[in-house]
Design a protein around this nucleic acid. Structure first.
Lengths: 226, 226
DNA sequence: TAAAGTTAACGTTTGTTAACGTTGATAATG
DNA sequence: CATTATCAACGTTAACAAACGTTAACTTTA
């Protein structure tokens, strides 16, 4: 199972396609580019991408039509439409043809990535218990290791326990006291200092994906986001 | 913060309604059942559901009519129509009345659930606290950052809380006292001074889009506009 | 006796307090 | 009636203390 997410991008404006492709590649997506609807559909059949981004207006075969044919074969792969028209009708049509989201041009890369991650997120995080995906790391609590791009980083027991607690409560604040009670079984001053040290250690070991952050909420606790 | 998703189901065929209700409940949805259009609309007003599933043909008030009235009050809640007729015309009408998707009877529960999840996923991402567009900034309350043109600006917890409150009440005045009570849990003189400081900090961090303004209404409170 | 975890020391960040400047509404004055 | 005085509300900056981050020395554990 490769960690890179494979994106099929169907876009006839080559300059735009290039920009999107490069932006996505810097974020560790693999991008397959079809220059028109037919080519895109061919690539879909051959490459089995994880997510599809379709321009609506394209030569040979429009985006809606591609989506319709894709859905005959695969009901799950997320589809995002890019549309220059802003009419509601288009948007509605997109959903009717099996799209999951749409973006009006012009759009920012941030927006596209957010939407993609949202659609992927629902599928992605269903990995099993002894492997947890976190950003573009894989975390194996039982083995006490973090894997990034096939490179293994060993974790100690305390590091593992702390990271697991943070991941189990991803995007939520965990009170300092709660962490201390669970992992150190003790909320005194020195345990607090110790926790700080381990937070530092984890931040260092997670530095290869900058989207992962362990955020401190002063006087409350910590929150892991990605 | 993952409370049950609340579904309003409007369906006059009681046997079918019961099947849908039970299926959804086993999947951890909470279901409110209206036996006709009027009852359904009443429930909508009282219960503020997360998603609405409307049979089109119902006594007293049909599904389209319910959708039309719902949309007067709430433009975001996803609406799915159930229709026995298979004409495209109906479908188009459904979208015209503000529906987001439709299912032809007979349909499988799997299909209904997939459609529901698809719509909920999208909405979650728009209204949910993950990403909020504000002017040409993107605000990520969970990550405590503001992004402008790919440039990241870190926010502290207080800054995040205050900005989120302002954005949630965009274009409306929030009373000083309300802000102080919610964020500082305290309305004394010093908290007031502290709030002033944070208003200044936010204004500075939002300076890259001059259309965004935090306006003071003397002796009342603040209003964020953009 | 290495490796893991804790303690200690010190640097950095965050939120509060304080001091003072600016603005706007109302009242007093010529 | 226009001008000025006054005062409270708000804005801005900086100083400060507490919380947190980081590094390294030290102690414990397997």
């Amino acid at each position: 199972m490769s960690t890179k997410i494979r994106v099929l991008l169907a876009e006839d404006e080559l300059a735009l396609a290039q920009i999107i492709k490069e932006s996505l590649e810097t974020r560790n997506f693999e991008v397959i580019h079809g220059k028109n609807g037919e080519e895109a559909f061919d690539f879909f059949l051959k490459e089995n991408p994880d997510i599809i981004v379709l321009d609506v207006m394209m030569p040979l075969k429009d985006g809606f039509s591609v989506a319709k044919d894709v859905r005959k074969i695969n009901k799950n792969v997320p589809i995002i439409f890019l549309t220059a028209k802003s009419q509601t009708l288009d948007v509605v049509d997109g959903f009717a043809f099996g799209g999951n989201d749409y973006l009006k041009k012009p759009f920012s890369m941030e927006e596209l990535i957010v939407r993609m991650q949202s659609l992927l997120g629902r599928i992605e995080n269903k990995t099993n218990d002894d492997t947890i995906a976190i950003g573009n790391y894989l975390f194996y609590p039982i083995k006490q290791i973090l894997v990034h791009n096939y490179k293994i980083e060993n974790l100690t027991h305390r590091e593992t326990a702390l990271l697991q607690l943070l991941i189990e409560n991803k995007n939520e604040i965990i009170d300092r006291e709660v962490i201390l009670k669970i992992i150190w079984n003790n909320t005194d001053f020195f345990s607090g200092r110790s926790m700080d040290v381990f937070i530092t250690k984890l931040r260092k070991k997670l530095i290869l994906d900058t989207t992962i952050q362990i955020i401190n909420i002063r006087s409350k606790g910590y929150k892991l986001t990605c």
